[in-house]
Design a protein around this nucleic acid. Structure first.
Lengths: 154, 154
DNA sequence: ATAAAAAAAGAGATTCTTATCTTAAACTCG
DNA sequence: CGAGTTTAAGATAAGAATCTCTTTTTTTAT
């Protein structure tokens, strides 16, 4: 459904939304470590996102990537378009060239509502709103913030 | 979510379930044409499915692929395992190594119910049952049985 | 025998992912 | 101001996975 590249990109954007600011820019190295993604690959993705004005960056000491208030008004959907292009999402789950409500594949009516829901989430919500939701509901975007419950014995 | 290979395989199985029998074996060439898939690639997939006893085949004149009654008791899920292996389906939508109800990614609770539903459909239903459903509800597995409504003017 | 078809193996192409290296910009400090 | 350091940007290409095609072999029916 989404390429690895796109998944990395989405997580990076969310990471930056949560952790960065104009006064706190973050280098690729740190982002890659935090999200456990291949560093050079991520660098390329961030460049792409920067070209498309989805993230901001400055070079030099204390430089790095960050989201300004404008960037935060974009949606996850914009990231998907920037990295994967629009096509992948709309494809039929079984690979039919033409599959829609009128000529549905055997699983079309299982897949369609799901796509609607996740599109709602990706397209109609700004990054800002997304972050609020993530914080309120305690969501996870890297292994680092895992809540493992391993040795609780209180 | 599924590789192209797997999508081809699923559609082939359904095609064979609907159109073939022990007395009516179907060659790769025909299947590939009907489903509009690359022929040699499909051949390889059908061989794999045959090795895993998901489809039956005989060589020689009047030979071809078909489903016997045993094959028809399998599920789509078996096809997925045979072609893609089990992994792909269970992966987190955002690529997190560990994403579950306890440590959910930001879209986990959107994706999870969908996965449950489609797993129900793929795992708990035999090919036979699937075909009944397809016939009853007029589903499409190739471009050939498209119901185009293009020039209706009755 | 001969012809038809799957089985098998592998070559080629394309796309996706990751890595390396060079260049350019921006800040820091003397 | 100017040299040096830091960091992103960009170019290139290596590696891996996926997809497609070709050729040869084996089996089976007639």
């Amino acid at each position: 459904m989404l390429s690895n590249a796109c998944k990395y990109a989405i997580r990076s954007i969310l990471y930056l939304a949560i952790n960065s600011s104009e006064d706190n820019k973050i280098g690729v190295k740190v982002i890659a470590e935090e999200l456990e993604t291949p560093q050079p690959f991520l660098a390329k993705l961030l460049q792409q996102l920067t070209r498309d004005k989805l993230v901001s960056s400055t070079k030099g000491p204390n430089g790095g990537f960050y989201l300004d208030s404008k960037n935060r008004k974009n949606a996850i959907w914009d990231v998907i378009i920037s990295i994967d292009g629009t096509g992948k999402f709309d494809n039929c789950f079984l690979g039919l060239a033409k599959c829609d409500d009128r000529n549905p594949c055997p699983v079309h009516f299982i897949v369609a509502p799901f796509k609607d829901k996740i599109l709602d989430s990706f397209r109609d919500k700004t990054i800002d709103e997304y972050v609020v939701e993530i914080k309120n509901t305690n969501r996870v975007i890297s292994l680092k913030d895992l809540d493992l419950f391993e040795d609780e014995e209180s």
